[in-house]
Every structure is written in C-alpha cells, then in structure tokens.
Write a protein that binds this DNA or RNA. Sequence first.
DNA 1: TAGAGAACGATTTTT
DNA 2: TCGTTCTCTA
Length: 777
Amino acid sequence: MSKKAELLSLRKEILNDEFSFLNPPQREAVFSNDGPLLILAGAGSGKTTTVISKIGYLIRYGNAYNSQEIDFTDDDGEFLKECLANKKMRDGERYFRLMSPSPVDAYNILAITFTNKAAGEMRERLEKQYGIDSGKLWALTFHSFCVRILRRFCDRLGYNRNFTIYDDTDSHRVIESLIKKYRLTERYNAKTVARIISTAKSRNTSADEYSGENDIEKIYRDYQAELKAANAFDFDDLIFMTVRLLSLDEDVKSIVNNRFRYILVDEYQDTNPIQERLISLLAPSGRICVVGDDDQSIYRFMGAQVENILNFEKRFRNAKTVRLEQNYRSTQTILDAANAVIKNNEDRKGKNLWTDAGEGEKISVCHLQSQSEEGDFICRAITERKEKEGLRNNDFCVLYRTNAQSGAIEHALRLHGISYRVFGGLPFFKRKEVQDILAYMNVICNPNDRTRLLRIINEPKRGIGDTTIEKINSICDKTGRSFFDITAHADSYAELQRSAEKLKDFAGIINELTEKSERMRPSELCSEIISSIHYEYELKKQYETNEAISRIENVRELINSIAGYEEAEENPTLLGYLEQTALVSATDSLDENEPAVTLMTMHCAKGLEFNTVFITGFEEGLFPSSISLLETGGVEEERRLCYVAITRAKKKLFITNVASRMIFGSARPAIPSRFLKEIPEELIEETETRRPERPAQRRTKPLSERPLLTNSVTVMPGSKAPTKKYRTGQRVRHKVFGDGVITGVTEMSSDSMLEVEFETVGKKKLMANYANLKEIL
DNA sequence: TAGAGAACGATTTTT
DNA sequence: TCGTTCTCTA
C-alpha cells in the first residue's frame, strides 16, 4: 500500500470513529456527498441526528471520507495513528490539514424544512453540537426561505420589498368578493376556487397560463391583480414567485446558486411540484440531499406528491439511496404492527423497521359502546398507567382522525380531573380578535393592503357599510387612486358625502397610528391600537361576559407575544413580527414538558413521540374516512396516516373504537376499521369488550360542563398553564413593562386579572396566566 | 347599516 | 350538532 493510500484509509478510520455514535447506514448517509442523495428514513430512525451530523461533517471535514485529496509529509502517518487512538488529539491545524482538505463554509449550506418547529430544532442542535451560527447557515422553512429571497429581489417582479403575506382567510376574502362581483355565487364557493388557484400555482401555472373554465380564469387573473396591487403574496405565491424569479432572472439565480452549494431538504415526501421545482433550481450542482419517508406522506390533499420521493432517482441522475430502518423509538411489537399495516400499500419503496429494544407490551384493542365510554376508558387507562408505570400526564397522547372527536374525550378528561391540552382547532393567530388587530398592524405597514383595510374599516362598527365600500371601489376604478387615499379624502367626493365624516375619522386613526409606529416598539404600537379603537370596550359590548373575557385575554396575549418577539430578536420590526405570525402553526408551540395529556389529530402528530398513545375512533367511515374511500389512492393515504399514528408510540399503544358514534348530531352504528384486521392477532390483546347492545342514550351536557368557548383550553404560544397565586402588594417583574406592584386581583373563570402599577409605564391590567410575571423582592 | 333568524354544510391543514 | 354565512327587516 502506498503511503497516501495508507493515510487515506487512516483518515476513514478516524472519521468512522468520530461518527461512531451513528449506525452504519446513518454513517453512509453522512459520508455520501458526491451526488444527489435520498435518505429514506423510517419513523424514529434518527433522521434528525443523521442530518445534523451530515452538516457538522461537511463543515468540519468537507467531503474528506471520499476525497483522494490529502496534503501530507513523511511522519503524518504516525500522527494520524495517534489521533485514531486518542480522541483528544483530534484538533489543531495539523489534524485538520490532513483530515479536512476542503471544508464547507456554513454560509454555503441551505437546509429546508416544512415546519418552523423542525427548522428551529435544527438551528438549535447545529448551534449546540457544532457551534454553527444560525445567521450564517440558513435552516428555514420553504416559505421563510422564499420570503428572504423575495424581500431581497421581488422588485424585479414588480413588487415592493415591504410586501405583506396573505393567509388563506385573506385569500378567501378576495376570492369571495370576486365571485360576488361576477355574480357567480350560485355556481362557485370561495373555498373551491381558492383550492383550484392554489393547485394551479402548486403546478407552476400562472394566471395567464391557466386554462380552464372561463369564470375561473377570470377570477384567477383578477385575484392575482388584486394581490399585486395590494403588494401582497399568498402562501403559494411565496414559492411560486421565487421559482419565477429563479427561472427568469439569470442574475438572481447565479447569486443564489453561488451562495447555496449544498442543499438539504427534510420531509421530502410532502413536497408538491412547485417545491420540487424550487429544489431543482436551487441544486443545479447535484449537491443535494433529501430526507423523507414515502410511508409517511399524508398531505396529498394539500398538493403533496409521493411521486417526488418515489421518482427521486429518475429526477436526479446518479442519485444514491440510503435506507434507515433501525428504529430507536418503539418496541418491536409496535413496529411489527406498523410494518404489517403499511405492507398492504402498493406504491412504496419498501422498508422494514426493526429495533433491538425488545418485544414490549401487547397492543390493547378496546371495543366500547359509546364515545363517552371511550373517553372514560382512556381516562382510566391513563390513571392506571400513571400509578403502575410512574408516568406523567405528558407521557400520554390521544389521537383522532377529526377535530370533532376531541369534545367527548375532553369532557371525560375534565370529569376525571386530568389536565390536557388540545392542538388544532382554531389556532391563536387565526382568531378573529387577533386577526383584527394584526390587520391594523398590516395596514400600518402596507396601506395598499386592501383586504386587511376592508377587514378593519368597519371593525369595530363605525357605521361604514357595504354601500359605502362599493362607492369607494368604483371611485378607485375611475380615478386609479388607492382605496386608503380615497378614504382619507372622502369629503372631496360627492357620492361619499353621507359617510365622509366617518371615513375621515377612520383614516385619521390609521394615520396617527402610522406616525406613532415610527417611534414605538411593535408591542407598544399594538396596545396603542387596542386603546385607540376602544377595542376591549367593543368586545365587552359585543359578547357575553365569559366570551368577552376570553377574547380580551387573547388580545392581551398578542401584546405578550409581540413582547416575546422583541426580546428574542436582535432587531425587532413590525414587519418582521407580522411575517413571523403569518408563518406560524399550532404545533410550533408544543412544550413537551408541560404536565398535560396531549390531544391532537393524527396529522398533527407527525414527528412527535409519546410513551403511551391512544388511537381513537378506529372505525370504518371515520378511519379510513368515508370520503377517502371514494378517492383513488384514498385508502392508501389513510393507511399511511395509520402508520404514522402507530409509530408515535414508544412503549404502549391503545386502539379504541365504539359501536355507536354521534355524527352530525345523530347516533350511527360503527364497525371496526379495516386497518384493525391488518394488525396480526398475536400482537393484540383485547382488554374490554362491548356491552350487550342497548339503545343509544341521549346525553345533553349540563351547561357547567360545556367549555366556555370552543378551544378555550388550547394552549397558546407563550402561555404557561399553572395559575400562580397572586396577591395585592406583591412585587413582580414583567419582561416588557419592568418592575411593579400588584394593586388589584380579580378572579375570573380560569384565570385572574391583575392590576399592576409599574414603575416606568404606570398602571396596566394583565391576565395572570399570560403575563408571565416573575415574583421579585 | 345592524342585528335577528334561516339555511347550509361538515376530513385531514406543515405555511 | 354546531358554527358560519345568507337574507330579511326595522
């Protein structure tokens, strides 16, 4: 063996040792960087660890494992041998000269995920384990990556860089008004049209290129024109426009390609065609690594194409595939069940999960009579396992197919006094009162944002109705002036005589706030908005006490949320905050340590794990859903969902179904899900059997048991569950308002309202649960 | 223009 | 059943 070959092989040995905490396929995935790489990562197979290690390897060692390049002198062999024997030697200039001929700069790596949570975790782990600066290495979601590109280059598409982002509620509003404008309400609803437009964009089809029904073509074009005029992008546009930019503007493309030399994409099975297109444009070099699991593709209804992962090797030439099949999460029993179920699908790459963790407990399947029994059973099982296994509430998760199922389970948990939190439902940032205030903030940033302007022009009620708005719209069309401009000068238009005063008042409020926004922190501006429109007073007027309290809490929580943003961000701006809120989701806020049982849909649970998992409503028509039975490939998609649900469990899985389920108010008989038969009998123990048939009872919940507001128990970002006891005279510290003394405590339904006299900002009212006050001396 | 009552329609939702 | 949107009337 030549000297060089010897050194290269020593180098490999050292690298294998450096990454010996990984299993062989994981290491192969880390070391393979010569061309496109597909990592097929089964549930719980250490996917994130592998990706993090890969990035760490690239930055520390470049592609050294497969590189022939080595700069050595005579006695380097001895040195490497010492390094192999002694970990402490692996540092310093000489070591890296031999071990890392061409390291990759963090600046040249781009890691893309779907959720903020995943991106955040990645940034955190890179920072912690490899000291990688998250300002240098972009680990972002598809959408936030595109926002960054667009903020820099969107002027080339004719947009202004302070654009706002429309969520689907905003899109709906625009589409709805267009449907009304063309008098098509009989034929279309906004939801369907929004879906069609979204699908078109996800297929890289612009409004001009789109061909379909005339009316839809018209609406799509107008919708796009409206967004452009409002200087806004919808979610699909963020990606669609970035793709346009990269494919049409060579200059931008080369800037972007020059920066990002290595691309990593997580959850590749969930990409849609336009995202795949984006990835191709980003990785012309072929230095791309995608990670995913075709068996966990559960977002087809959102446009995801499993084909992207199935055809990866065709799409990217010379691609290599590595399978991660060793599972570090679950027992063999749980994995056997998951494998057995997913085996019934045809369109898949094929994988078989295994573990050396041992067989574990059997899967408990329980047939129950009604939903209330189902809930009751879950509570008893939780209590029993808490006692026997020493588990805590946060070790448990209850999964269901539809959000509507949560009610009965919540009811049971309340009766048993088990604390819980529900994910999904209406997320915090989608709530009406929160959206209203955010709309004010959006308008202040971007007065062209007509959709938000329309939302707040009569919110709270100012006596500005549809007729007035119609009139302003037609003046817009005639004069070409902006909606806000006309509102502000309403008295110059004869047709607006009657409402001119009200319109000018409104414009005055906005102008004043806009002016203030220049010298106020976003959180201050937010409370300024709330007080200048007397919003809390309006809420009290509009809703009954409990609901008004809850909505006021939400509005105040919004201020807290902004304050939190200001604290976390080096350079907080209003626009930055709005961008963040536009791109957050419910599960982003999951705090694993909070002592509560988790309730969520199976979709929401992807990527999470719990000691004990309950899969409820295992019934035909519900799971698989009756609608899925009609769609081609629908059952396969549901089966993948089942696979995802089963593999969330680490130690113990419960599956429940009922004989009679309330659907839309009436009790309907249910039969066990077909997926149950796909789980081998020897993995199952049936712990409870159905009682003899008896007529379904009508239950009307007493008022006191009903939740005050739907989702009132949903844990919101930043909030902390346990209510601390506060008393007057106590000194406290608030992260924005500073130090103060409690001057009043008013107990409310589930929280208490505190009056605090702050040293610097004076008297404030805060909700105890959300204010996050620290006790001080 | 606002509010009350009728009619409708209803999986899943990373951003 | 329940929550949102539509339509009518004061």
